[in-house]
Write a protein that binds this DNA or RNA. Structure first.
Lengths: 237, 237
DNA sequence: ACCAGCCTCGCTATTTTGGGGGAGGGTAGA
DNA sequence: TCTACCCTCCCCCAAAATAGCGAGGCTGGT
């Protein structure tokens, strides 16, 4: 079993483009003998890409209908931390139920598990396994393979990150301690007067920090600067 | 080996407070025969807590000196995705090197590996293993145990999430599509006029969205609202 | 069928930010 | 050493955001 996992990880590691990941998902599907494996990834500039075994028809349909905006799997995972079984999601709306029926018609399994992972710059990835089976069979499958799947999901993420860094990487400008403190207070909702009082400096000085931070971050205004500082993991609210 | 991992995970699962996690870190340390295991967590409202085997002296010192703001492990992991060996971090500044020497003096290992994980609402967790050893021994240890450690780290996260939800959980307010779009444009640095033009609505209407978002997010001003929307994963820049 | 919530538009006055200048002392890295 | 960057303080004025009112049409869920 250990060796199998090793081989599966390697099939991901050996990918050198999105096509390679695609191939890896097919290998995984065959290995586990289930219906689908899908890896979906949003990079730090909001571009999406995916690799997986869903039929092209379904992918086209999904894009055409902009299902991304209402897919309970996506919406649910954006709010979660842990791997989530599709059954735990909110399918209560009419649109969601219709979407699910349509998905099953297009060959997506009636059972699914999605593992969400987040990166430091707004990256968001979803590793999904899906199959057609009853609740008990599915629960057994998950119980057996959850950990391996998490490891494999992680390999996918590593690969996706490599691809992104292969592109243009932002060098992440360093802010001075006072600048960071200032940005943190602003991110907490203070205005300049409050933040200055908190930092025990004049409002003028505070302004200097904010402007310095703005310039370093290439931001157009304070809100933008705070947003960038947050996205880049420079500060935490 | 498998059974050992199972037992370790259970020791985490059985924790029903932070003290329980503390106990679990001690068990892990003894199991692996290394110097330290530390789990550090920032929840969605910015409160931090930790469980681990560092000496109280070091923890006190760390807090007193506000090392959180300059600790290269924290700063580095805030920018990363994958588990990171401490050797890969940026120790070039004098302050960082002094910090490292001091840490070693306080019993922290000279080798370390930290696994960062992010949640949907700005939660950020760090699972760290540390020991005193040479590069080769450490590399071997990591190579052998990385995957198990990732699984264990995940158990910690699951537990931390439970604790948070047990307390007062922010119900994650849902923003309407237009509100989200508005917040996204603001996060990109547009002012109200530009965002309104982009959305093809009047500036007044845009203002309504911003205020609605502000109220839903409990934010004091626009910058705060954008910061919260970002930290909670509602928008991506 | 109804209600909640979304989307759209309007006004005025006050508060907060942003842009443009400077200036001097302190400290860490090359 | 010495240079670059950090920290701190000051002025004036234009531009932008916020607070407080309000109103009507449309859609989705119960």
């Amino acid at each position: 079993m250990e060796e199998k996992l090793e081989a599966l990880c390697e099939s991901v590691q050996n990918a050198d483009d999105v096509g390679g990941l695609q191939h890896a998902t097919e290998g995984l599907r065959d290995h586990y003998g289930i219906a689908h494996i899908v890896y979906h990834w949003v990079n730090s500039v909001g571009e999406r890409f995916g690799a997986g075994t869903y039929s092209q028809d379904w992918v086209d349909r999904y894009v055409e209908k902009d299902y991304l905006r209402m897919d309970p799997v996506i919406l649910g995972c954006l709010q979660r931390f842990n791997p989530v079984d599709w059954k735990e999601l909110d399918w209560s709306s009419r649109a969601a139920r219709a979407f699910f029926r349509e998905a099953v018609d297009f060959g997506v399994g009636n059972q699914g598990l999605s593992i969400p992972i987040r990166g430091p710059s707004g990256q968001f990835a979803l590793f999904t396994v899906s199959d057609n089976s009853d609740d008990f069979t599915w629960a057994t499958f998950i119980d057996r393979n959850m950990r391996d799947l998490m490891i494999v999901a992680h390999e996918f993420n590593k690969k996706a990150l490599e691809f992104e860094q292969g592109g243009d990487s932002a060098p992440a400008p360093a802010l001075s301690p006072r600048e960071l403190t200032a940005m943190t207070y602003l991110a907490k909702g203070m205005n300049r007067a409050q933040a200055a009082k908190e930092m025990e400096i004049s409002e003028h000085t505070l302004r200097v920090y904010i402007e310095a931070a703005r310039h370093k971050l290439g931001a157009l205004n304070t809100t933008h600067a705070v947003a960038r500082a947050l996205s880049r993991g420079l500060i935490v609210v």
